[in-house]
Design a binder for these strands. Structure first.
Lengths: 141, 141
DNA sequence: GTCAATGCAAATCCTTTGCAACTAA
DNA sequence: TTAGTTGCAAAGGATTTGCATTGAC
């Protein structure tokens, strides 16, 4: 997902394009497959000409999530991590527990899960499949 | 998992059995398949003869998680929810988003996931498969 | 000009910690 | 006796909010 598509989507939804908003999006684009925190984005902002307050960062991340442009993960400590969505079909992620890098897995046992849910009289609305481990770079020798 | 097994496991690990500890475990047993918060447990404690401070609740939940007796979920708001483990084989959960009730799904596409991870040179250490929806009771008409 | 977005400081919520007093074994 | 446990109050850390000011369109 590139800057133009994101900006256009936001404009269509009536959001204004501010310097802070563009900067936050460009940081997310740079980090593409890496899960990053609001704090990390804020630090990156501080390194640049236009700073953005941490509450501005949070507000912008909320806008992006609500606009279905951004994926919010919650880690085991309960903290939010973010990564831009790709417009691919339904998929899940491999997540490196060392560096936060993610990779897409184009596999989902949805039919099987649906069938099992029905057996239990559960109506399935959504699901989470997350695979954790070491990416190539971070694999211990 | 019943009280006796839990108490014995804790004793074996050198933990003492206090009134608060027993009360917290019995509340978890009563709620069996329901995901509950530390706050909920604290409120239940307050209704009974022996109260337990919220920090005591958290400390006891930590002990139970570390002893592999308790499952800690993190919800989409980043808050922790708990439920006693069952000693069954590897499995995943259906989770009702209304009442927190869970049901065990004895299915895991582990082989497939392992194979896909290897293709990406990822070493898989653990994974999360969580199915969300409405349980029978909470299904909207 | 108007309404959304920002910065700042304060507030909130959940969770953790330090420490003195207590208690199970 | 003595190490683990508790209660209390205070601290922490991530996230949110109120409000006056600013800025995009």
């Amino acid at each position: 997902m590139d800057m133009k598509i994101i900006i256009n989507t936001l404009k269509e939804k009536g959001y204004k394009i501010t310097a802070q908003r563009k900067m936050i999006v460009s940081i997310l684009i740079e980090q593409k497959d890496n899960l990053i925190s609001a704090y990390f984005i804020n630090e990156e902002c501080n390194k640049r000409h236009e700073k953005a307050n941490i509450s501005t960062v949070y507000r912008n991340l909320d806008v992006l999530v609500e606009s279905d442009l951004l994926h919010r993960f919650i880690d085991d400590d309960g903290n939010a991590l973010y990564k831009l969505k790709c417009k691919d079909s339904h998929h899940h992620h491999l997540i490196c527990t060392v560096c936060g890098k993610t990779e897409v897995i184009n596999y989902c046992p949805l039919e099987k899960l649906q069938a099992l849910s029905l057996e239990k009289s559960f109506i399935l609305t959504h699901h989470k499949i997350e695979l954790y481990g070491y990416c190539k770079k971070c694999t211990p020798q």
